[in-house]
């Protein structure tokens, strides 16, 4: 256990030394990896911000529930109780009197409203569910429609569906992009490690002759690949964060022009960690492939 630990420590230290000993190469590799990871990371953040923007847009994920005209106060209470038991999220009750008052306030409607023999408007609920997936909204709409004294349930699914389809398409495109760049990252590491193995042919040969196991010989290269990838991930995080902070002011200005309240969300710590971990994993993978191929000639 002790030997295992000290060997890993030595391999990690040797990987660090190798990165440090060729600063220019290391810097270039890190930039290549960082830029390769920046595009998918930025795309992810953009989509996430869009989704956020979509869910903030008012009136989109609302379900309007209109009761029948003959519904009594008790029926309203029943519906409220039902909503409490099923719906996660908030709702607002709009009594018919209030609806009528609002209508009266509208331009040119006062006379028309006054001429009506009685209030034609029903009691209504405006429900804002927390789960805004189109499927979930649809299920909820059907459920509400089946309740007694409910005349009509209105859900603007078309918009929600369109927006969701757009996000899905974006997500797919993003995955494809990420796949291509991940392959690029693996290849970059593959090549760096191949050059390293060539440069250290003598050391590998000697180590083998005096009883080094395969694991001993491979370990520093794995660490090298993982370190390079992980640091590349951090470079990508810096690039994305930098780009976002450049965008922040123009976006705020634009949103202000629309009278909205929205600001770009930067990368969180967990996401930076995930980006770095993804880089490290891909670097390790590239090292693994490269070492397996390059070390064959030493057998």
């Amino acid at each position: 256990m002790n030997a295992w630990f000290s060997q890993h420590k030595a391999a990690l230290a040797s990987a660090f030394r190798r990165l440090w000993s060729t600063p220019l190469n290391t810097l270039l590799s890190l930039l290549v990896i960082g830029i390769a990871l920046t595009l998918p990371a930025a795309g992810y953040l953009l989509l996430d911000n869009l989704r956020d923007l979509g869910s903030h847009a008012t009136g989109v994920q609302q379900i309007s529930l209109f009761m029948t005209l003959d519904a009594s106060k008790k029926d309203v209470g029943d519906i409220e109780a039902k909503l409490r038991s099923v719906a996660s999220g908030k709702w607002k009750f709009v009594p018919k009197e209030e609806a009528l008052k609002r209508m009266q306030k509208s331009e040119g409607m006062a006379d028309i409203v006054a001429s009506l023999p009685r209030n034609p408007l029903p009691d209504a609920f405006i429900v804002e569910p927390t789960n805004t997936e189109p499927e979930a909204l649809e299920v909820m709409r059907k459920e509400i429609a089946s309740w007694p004294k409910v005349a009509h349930v209105q859900l603007d699914t078309a918009w929600v569906k369109r927006f969701d389809a757009f996000l899905k398409l974006g997500k797919l495109a993003l995955w494809m992009l990420a796949g291509v760049f991940a392959a690029g990252l693996v290849l970059v590491t593959f090549n760096t490690i191949r050059l390293q193995v060539m440069a250290q042919a003598m050391e590998i040969e000697v180590a083998r002759m005096i009883g080094a196991t395969d694991a001993f010989i491979r370990r520093p290269f794995y660490y090298y690949g993982a370190l390079q990838g992980g640091l590349g991930g951090l470079v990508a995080a810096v690039l994305v964060t930098g780009g976002l902070s450049l965008l922040a002011t123009p976006v705020a200005d634009l949103v202000a022009l629309y009278g909205g309240n929205f600001s770009l969300r930067p990368l969180g710590l967990a996401e930076i960690g995930a980006l770095s971990a993804a880089g490290a994993f891909l670097g390790w993978l590239g090292a693994q492939l490269s070492v397996s191929l390059s070390l064959r000639k030493f057998d």
Binding site: N2, A3, W4, S6, V206, A207, M209, I210, G211, F216
Partner: peptide, 24 residues
Amino acid sequence: QKLLFDRSVLDNVLLPLQIVGLPR
């Protein structure tokens, strides 16, 4: 001899011990 010329005399002798994982 197969010595490693990129490292010191001491480091050359250390290699077999690193391989067996002796504490530094």
